[in-house]
């Protein structure tokens, strides 16, 4: 018993030293951003940059690129999550119900983007996007088609975990024998049961889309990161403040996600 107490004390010490040191390494650049955005021209501190950033009318008038970027990213988040869910949830459910032999193929395709760097995807997507521009126009919103491919592996894993935790076949058969059509089965039986998986797939997609730069930049479209990068050449203080805000926003999204996951774990025992 004494041995274990000594070990536990040593472990706690080790934990705080390691977490403290890496925490410091992680914090320094973030502190650097905070410090940089609060510099006053003659030395000293000012919150002027932050006041400008949160002054909607001023940003609207003086920094139109930030507004377009923000709006484009908001639209991209919604469209990406919508396409991802509408495509993946029914397909994955259907495969489990009717064609289990297809599961490995679907998994392979969904995980394939992990081996294709975004920059390579850009090279290959160039002709595809020439067609997209021809049929649908040049809007930044259509980047969502490529973003769905980027989020595919993460969304697949989250949804697969969710669907594995419930008995899809029995649930669907029960609903069908009570006279439900396939849309009802999807919407009122499967979807409520994989709520947390859907949420976590969506949150991951949101974080990924908010941080995407490569594809938008090389196709010369607008999104938040492209706008921030562009703004950096004109007003580096404001651009740094915007970048830090986006980072904090993404942290809040993922922190919220960690509670969603915990909710699922505590429910599992009564489901099994």
């Amino acid at each position: 018993m004494r041995l274990r107490a000594v070990r536990r004390r040593r472990q706690t010490l080790f934990r705080w030293v390691v977490v403290g040191l890496t925490g410091l390494f992680f914090a320094l650049p973030l502190l650097g951003m905070a410090e940089f955005t609060t510099r006053a021209p003659g030395g000293g501190r000012t919150l002027q940059t932050w006041a400008t950033l949160f002054n909607v009318t001023a940003v609207d008038a003086d920094y139109p690129e930030l507004r377009t970027g923000l709006l484009a990213s908001a639209g991209l988040v919604l469209l990406t999550v919508a396409i991802m869910l509408v495509m993946l949830v029914p397909t994955m459910t259907w495969v489990r119900l009717r064609m289990p032999g297809m599961r490995r193929t679907i998994e392979f395709i969904c995980l394939l983007p992990l081996t294709i760097p975004a920059i390579v995807l850009v090279v290959g997507l160039a002709p595809v996007y020439a067609w997209v521009a021809y049929f649908l126009g040049e809007s930044s919103l259509w980047l969502a088609f490529a973003y769905v491919v980027l989020v595919l592996p993460y969304a697949y894993r989250a949804l697969d975990a969710g669907l594995s935790a419930i008995d899809v076949v029995t649930l669907a058969e029960a609903a069908r024998s009570l006279g439900a059509g396939w849309p009802t089965v999807m919407w009122r039986v499967i979807l409520p049961n994989v709520r947390t998986a859907v949420l976590s797939a969506s949150f991951l997609s949101v974080a990924l889309v908010l941080g995407e730069f490569t594809i938008a930049n090389l196709f010369s479209r607008d999104n938040l990161q492209v706008a921030i990068n562009l703004l950096g050449k004109r007003d580096s203080s404001l651009a740094t403040a915007a970048a830090l805000t986006a980072l904090i926003l993404a942290f809040v999204v993922l922190f919220a996600l960690s509670f969603v996951g915990a909710g699922r774990r505590s429910h599992q025992p009564d489901e099994n």
Binding site: G32, L208, G211, A243, L247, F251, F255, S258
Partner: peptide, 23 residues
């Protein structure tokens, strides 16, 4: 830690460039 690492690992790019220039 897991949320922070999730952000720092996935969210890099432009933000990290600014952060290191500012530091």
């Amino acid at each position: 830690m897991t949320s922070l690492c999730g952000v720092l690992a996935q969210f890099g790019g432009v933000t990290l460039a600014f952060a290191f220039v500012a530091t």
